[in-house]
Design a protein around this nucleic acid. Structure first.
Lengths: 266, 266
DNA sequence: ATGCGGCGTTGATTTAAATCAATGATCATG
DNA sequence: CATGATCATTGATTTAAATCAACGCCGCAT
């Protein structure tokens, strides 16, 4: 299934490779609830970026006994807004979108979360958004009680968690500025620039950005319509700042200029 | 100065009363840096809502020795974006806006903070926004090091601070939804509904909302222009949901309907 | 191979909000 | 109390993005 040409060349090739490993271990998983045998943490590719980064090997051992690894198929949700919150999640691979719906179907995405990021923000014990897999993803499920216990007992964990929350606040603030005041060109430029920070490759002034999500996810993240997203990317292409080899791969050919557009420096 | 009829009836009457007290203690303060003598905390009106809520009287005593109280005149700033962050601030009275500017002068407000709220969010040791007084305000200045020390040593402080951050995340997420997807009517309805939660008075379906900020602050908070804010308030007035006795005082006459508009429930 | 469905792009048109402009209200100042 | 400045409202016009619509491309299933 994942051996097709498409899968190997697709934007999700990397996370699919990881999923392949899981599927080999226990084949024919039907649901997206995949409970991995043994302790995966020692070889976890996301560990250094995740909240468990600060744990000693011993602490990690105890911690890992309480967590489960789940494979989430593209489009499926991990949790939904208004559900009772029992778990946090660390993204191991793939990409998750946080979505909120208005009564009439309008949608706003507030974040994309990838390897190392923490999911499960709640308030009053209730999740605040839908968390859905943009592409096949692996997440690691941590009971809230356990995380609370460790943040109380392990100062390093507390620091890491606090930093993650600070970063999330910072991201959301910048996103509010983008949504409230930036033009479509600035929005797309900001989005692509941010994505280029952990991109596939980059040299001198070029970088390849892989978009795991479709145009409608980008539109709902940036507060635009898919048509405006499409037109704006075309515009940037015509300005000579981008190449668009496939709709899911964008090569930035002038990072400096794109960044200037993003930040509206005169 | 504060004894005029205007001051007594103005939206800022309450915080002015507090400032009066300070001015009596040490008259003719010229700057807005006001260092209060002795320990004010025992009688602080914001204490129950602030991060110091969880401290015992003894802990509070030690804590208060490290903090200073400052009076910020309307329009003045407490700190600016890109400045090195050395302090957190608790709002004692009045109202503070968090503002971000784009290169060409466009502005986005990300929050209004009032009594009990914590200010000073920073990332990498740098403040992320300008914090400016909407009306005369009193804040209490807490060295970051001290707050860190107390959060490490006092679990109650940790919990309170964590709750505050969660709430802030929650607010920002909701604000992103508003900025990205809501119509002007929904934006204003949401804003007024939120404000009515800690309003001057309310009975059955009515509530008086006092707006300490001007139309341009509302516009920059909601991602609109002042003209659209004005027109939209007029529209809601014509729909019979509001009265606008003065531009800074709004009486909601149908809270249920306004809330329905805000949340886009069909 | 063929047809279908989803996704992305592009074009034409509409529309809602921004902009431009004028006037009216409110507040501080001499 | 008169005066100017700032702030809010309202009207006219413009404009940028949404909406409506058509088409092309690609992968998928029959």
């Amino acid at each position: 299934m994942f051996d097709t040409l498409k899968a190997r060349n697709s934007p999700t090739a990397k996370c699919n490779a990881q999923i392949l490993r899981f599927e080999r271990q226990e084949k024919n998983t039907v649901s997206d609830r995949y409970i991995m045998p043994g302790s995966p943490c020692s070889s976890c590719s996301a560990r250094s970026k995740a909240i468990c980064a600060g744990l000693s090997d011993d602490e990690m051992d105890g911690f890992s006994r309480n967590i489960r690894t789940r494979l989430i198929k593209a489009g499926n949700s991990i949790y939904r807004e208004f559900e009772k919150a029992n778990y946090f999640y660390t993204v191991v691979s793939g990409e998750i979108r946080l979505a909120n719906l208005l009564g009439d179907g309008r949608r706003q995405l507030t974040a994309f979360k990838s390897a190392g990021d923490l999911l499960g923000e709640h308030n009053g014990g209730i999740y605040q958004s839908d968390a859905e897999a943009v592409c096949d993803a692996v997440v690691c499920q941590i009971p809230i009680k356990i995380l609370e216990k460790y943040t109380n007992e392990v100062p390093a964990m507390r620091v890491t968690l606090n930093t993650k929350m600070q970063n999330e606040l910072c991201d959301l603030r910048h996103h509010a500025i983008l949504l409230g005041r930036k033009t479509p060109i600035e929005k797309i430029a900001t989005f692509l620039t941010a994505r280029s920070e952990n991109c596939e490759w980059s040299d001198d002034d070029k970088a390849e950005v892989v978009l795991t999500m479709g145009r409608s996810d980008i539109a709902d993240f940036l507060g635009l319509t898919i048509e405006t997203v499409s037109r704006t990317i075309t515009k940037l292409k015509n300005m000579g700042l981008l190449l668009v080899p496939t709709s899911h791969s964008i090569v930035i050919t002038d990072q400096a200029c794109l960044k200037r557009l993003a930040e509206n420096e005169q």
